[in-house]
């Protein structure tokens, strides 16, 4: 297989498995490559890359090029950069997608300086606008008030991509692909940076705050009673969202004022706000209008919330909620 000029993905390994972000990048690379009739090549660096290589192929790579060396046991950006630079020299990729994780960003910045090529940081989209291999990268500017399109004038085109933007394809263990191991000379090299301790942080789903969470579920008087409210709260927790309420639920003392969303409660600006059984009074609207996406479930087709929600579902929230949860679980895999 011709491995030059392809779409390459730098694969980050967490533990021994691919990071979720790497899977997302493989999904995007697959899309870009299919449109151009090109191959997706995964670059993997580490002390033991076999399992990750297999996984990368199952998630969409056509081939894996791996650099394995005991000196790569831990992540030292200098040595990882050296490894990838050697692969670039041999395989001359058109593009390398790099995950915008802390380590990925470090690798990207170093690689750009080492190869003297341009890098676009923390992109939220990337596309071919013309017929050649030039990619247009899109990234936010000025705290998201604007977006910029950036191209690099050198090859390979480097870009780091933030997480949770692209979707991976489901793993297909029967996919086939070559795994090529490349030797890089690390004699005389020793890591100068070492991870000496790691402490996992407990998944803090319970303490998600409505002010900072990406997804917020709001419960309104449509929940009927305290028990109904608890059901919505449990739904929020299961889908990884923070939970808030409209004012009447606080007035009824079902929920503390801390959770009230609206003009006399908290103003929120999540990526997604899901309003369950909320009519959409102006005082509530003013608290949620900065959400990027509002989804409303209400059994009354004339409820005012449908005028400012981006998506409306007319139905009984207790019937829609479990179905929504199933669908979300499906795409989360």
């Amino acid at each position: 297989m011709e491995l030059k000029n392809n779409i390459s993905v730098y694969i980050e390994v967490a533990g021994s498995a691919l990071s979720t972000l790497s899977i997302e990048l493989l999904g995007k690379a697959r899309q870009l490559a299919d449109k151009k009739g090109e191959q997706v090549v995964a670059y993997i660096v580490g002390a033991d890359t076999s399992k990750a290589a297999e996984e990368a192929i199952s998630y969409g790579a056509d081939a894996v090029v791996a650099v394995e060396d005991p000196v790569l046991e831990g992540y030292d950006s200098a040595l990882y950069t050296k490894a990838i630079a050697a692969l670039v020299e041999k395989y001359a990729p058109s593009v390398i997608l790099i995950g915008g994780s802390p380590n990925g960003r470090d690798l990207g910045g170093r690689l750009s300086a080492k190869l003297k090529v341009g890098l676009v940081a923390d992109c939220i989209d990337v596309l071919h606008e013309g017929d050649d291999d030039t990619l247009t990268w899109i990234r936010p500017a000025f705290t998201g008030k604007l977006l910029v399109k950036i191209q690099t004038t050198t090859r390979p085109q480097l870009g780091t991509v933030s997480d949770k933007i692209f979707h991976g394809v489901p793993a297909n263990p029967s996919r086939k692909g070559d795994v090529i191991k490349e030797k890089v000379d690390f004699s005389g090299d020793a890591p100068t940076v070492k991870v000496t301790n790691f402490e996992a942080v407990e998944n803090a789903a319970e303490s998600l705050s409505i002010e900072s969470a990406e997804i917020v579920v709001g419960a309104g008087r449509g929940v009927q009673n305290e028990e109904g409210m608890k059901a919505v709260e449990a739904f929020a927790q299961r889908i990884g969202a923070a939970f808030g309420v409209s004012k009447p639920l606080v007035d009824n003392e079902w929920a503390p004022h801390d959770l009230q969303i609206g003009i006399t409660g908290k103003k929120i600006a999540p990526k997604i706000y899901i309003a369950m059984g909320i009519s959409g009074a102006i005082q509530h609207k003013l608290g949620v209008q900065d959400a990027e996406l509002i989804i409303a479930v209400n059994k009354d087709p004339d409820a005012p919330i449908f005028e400012f929600a981006h998506y409306g579902i007319v139905g009984d929230l207790f019937e829609v909620m479990p179905e929504l949860e199933k669908q979300i679980a499906k795409i989360k895999g």
Binding site: G118, L119, A141, K149, I150, T153, Y311
Partner: peptide, 21 residues
């Protein structure tokens, strides 16, 4: 000495409202 160029700056389009599923 730079290898990136900004080709366009634009405001993100807000999501359209009022889509009934």
């Amino acid at each position: 000495g730079s290898a990136t160029k900004v080709t366009e700056m634009f405001a993100p389009e807000p999501n359209p409202v009022g889509i009934m599923v």
